[in-house]
Design a protein around this nucleic acid. Structure first.
Ligand SMILES: [Mn+2]
Ligand SMILES: [Mn+2]
Ligand SMILES: [Zn+2]
Ligand SMILES: [Zn+2]
Lengths: 134, 134
DNA sequence: GAAAAACCTGCAACAAAGTTGCAATAATTC
DNA sequence: GAATTATTGCAACTTTGTTGCAGGTTTTTC
């Protein structure tokens, strides 16, 4: 599914900026990337602020997920391989610092801790050594 | 175990700033707090930069854990109730925004995804409705 | 397909969070 | 208590993200 169709399906205005940002995310080869990386890729075509606002729209429309990794900037990735309740786990190597998406690894959803909490989403972060650094 | 003993045991210089920061964390009633909150509590006694550097020392000495929640600032909490490989899960309410430590909830450690990854630590974030908001 | 409505975007200015260098100060060791 | 080692405050800076508003696009309506 390409950019234009994704935006249409989500009922979002199909603008040049959004197409470009979605393309950046598609080309990120499944790795979460940060707004400044996207901005750099787009060059001067769009303002930094537009990238932030575009990512917000995409997250709001559930096309994109926000990923929290051990870096100051939030990262983003397409949500097409995640379920409503659970994104795949992310693995960050403590040696080289790279983050990998573990799309095949399934982790059972945590049981509500019988105190009245209703769990709607689960996010798992793993840390250790990647194959290159082990 | 109080502040002074913890620092001694970790082989850290026992300074006024570190004692004050550890006290702040002890008084946080088990909730992760952010550097600016600690800074505000300490008033003008210590510089903001000192709080950051102190937290870094404490994290490095494994007395404190960095917690990533859905807020711009990193949060910190004492590590005394966490194992080497796993901190307790954190639950953030999508309604009121509060974060709770689920110290009783045990989540099985993810199996290394048989690709040469060595998993050393796991962090789980849950999202949903807290008892007050449900 | 033009006008109206709804929504996006760039710019400039701002705010919050965190980092760095360096001189002064404090804690520990001997 | 002098020497060593590590921590601190200050000022300046960087990165990341947010806001208001005027002007521009996209979509819808007719
Ligand atoms: Mn991913
Ligand atoms: Mn906690
Ligand atoms: Zn690595
Ligand atoms: Zn709540």
């Amino acid at each position: 599914m390409e950019a234009r169709a994704m935006l249409k399906a989500a009922g979002l205005y199909c603008t040049a900026a959004r197409l470009a940002v979605v393309d950046s995310l598609l080309q990120a080869s499944g790795r979460p990337i940060k707004p400044s990386t996207i901005s750099a890729q787009l060059g001067t075509r769009f303002d930094r602020v537009t990238v932030y606002r575009t990512l917000d729209s995409l997250v709001h429309a559930d096309l994109v997920h926000k990923v929290f990794i051990e870096e100051r900037a939030c990262h983003y990735e397409l949500a097409h391989r995640c379920s409503k309740t659970q994104c795949h786990p992310h693995f960050t190597c403590t040696c080289c610092g790279h983050t990998h998406c573990l799309t095949q690894l399934k982790i059972p959803m945590a049981q509500s801790p019988h105190l009245g909490f209703i769990v709607q989403r689960q996010q798992v972060r793993l840390e250790g050594l990647c194959p290159d650094c082990a």
